[in-house]
Design a protein around this nucleic acid. Structure first.
Lengths: 201, 201
DNA sequence: TTTACATATGAATAATTATTCATATTTTTT
DNA sequence: AAAAAATATGAATAATTATTCATATGTAAA
């Protein structure tokens, strides 16, 4: 039940302006961050007048929230696509991990924007990861029932571990500008090895 | 070989002002974030004149970098303390994980400030985690030699996985304001279980 | 005690910022 | 074709911002 802080355009002319604004927001928020980006920067990049911005968005936060939602939906979509039809939890986990890292690799700006929500609004960030974690928990519980996942481990902690792995192994890929899809496959493979058998002898 | 962007005080009077400034910076950066905090906010909270700030720091970034260094040193110190005298890699990993999470729990502002470097300056963030990751890699290599860690897994990826676990299991604790040291012990225990034997049956 | 150095002050400046609004244009509806 | 609705404009306003600097006070050295 969130406040409506943006107004969608009603004609094709409005649509063009709207798109120019969100496009500029994506680039600038991703590159310079939320707080460093001013509305002036956005309208300059989008090549619209100041007043035009306020036709569609209440303020800078409204635009940011719009983009954040967009990215979260895209990430979920990418994950759903990638795991469609897969049966074992192991295969689902593996494909989901790859999908997430590939998304981060192809759109590092999106990745930064999601992380930045920690500073834009801690509650937003918290809600996101709590919801994500609980959704994970739900799936892991089924996997325990089918006997795929061990039953002597705290599943909420496992959920956070899995989110930590995605995010940080994602960083390993993003840090290396020259990384390829083969690199992603490799780190996913290694991560799954650890999830399957641990790291200690 | 970093540029000196701050000037340490030379008398006890100066020391008091300096401390007031970094104390205000710690609180405000941690609470509201780097970009949301203005120098005006800092000097108001610290109760010093505007000019006094510039006696000790070139600008806001200089103060931020000073604090970031301070926190990184403290975290390393906490980890070194906690693992002193321990022999097996397993015990070291476990104690280090607990020390990190306890640090984050006791000083969530520090935790936020370190993460925010991703947005203040991506290169700073990258350097930090790359250095951290390489240091991890070094230790893991020895552990492979002693036979404690399996030799058929990519150790750099394991390093990033371990950083991911610390950071996200730390989040699980921070998200719950009522969490206790016993909760920390519990999530550390569960994490080690996964690192030892994996999560799948 | 005199001199040099360190420190403190806050008003003044200049730049940047978000936001509004009267006016104009374009598009859709009647 | 006229009326209504949607959209675009950018100058103007008011608030916030970082930074400087002339002046004053406190501290340590000669």
């Amino acid at each position: 039940m969130e406040k409506q802080t943006y107004r969608l355009p009603k004609t094709s002319v409005g649509e063009r302006s709207f798109k120019k604004i969100i496009r500029a927001g994506r680039v600038l928020f991703g590159k310079d961050g939320y707080q460093s980006t001013s509305i002036n920067d956005i309208i300059a990049k989008a090549k619209v007048a100041a007043g035009t911005f306020y036709i569609y968005f209440d303020n800078k936060l409204a635009l940011y929230m719009y983009l954040l939602d967009e990215y979260r939906i895209n990430i979920r979509k990418a994950s759903t696509e990638a795991t469609k039809g897969l049966k074992t939890r192991y295969d689902i986990e593996k494909a989901g991990l790859k999908a997430f890292i590939m998304y981060a690799k192809n759109d590092p700006l999106a990745y930064k924007i999601i992380w930045e929500s920690l500073f834009v609004d801690f509650e937003i960030f918290k809600d996101y990861y709590k919801t994500f974690g609980e959704s994970y928990l739900y799936h892991l519980k089924s996997a325990v029932k089918t006997g795929e996942v061990r039953d002597d481990i705290d599943l909420l902690t496992v959920s956070y571990i899995l989110m930590g792995i995605s995010n940080f192994v994602g960083l390993e890929i993003i840090f290396n500008e020259k990384s390829t899809e083969a690199d992603v496959d490799r780190v996913v493979e290694e991560s799954m090895k650890l999830l399957k058998n641990g790291m200690f002898k």
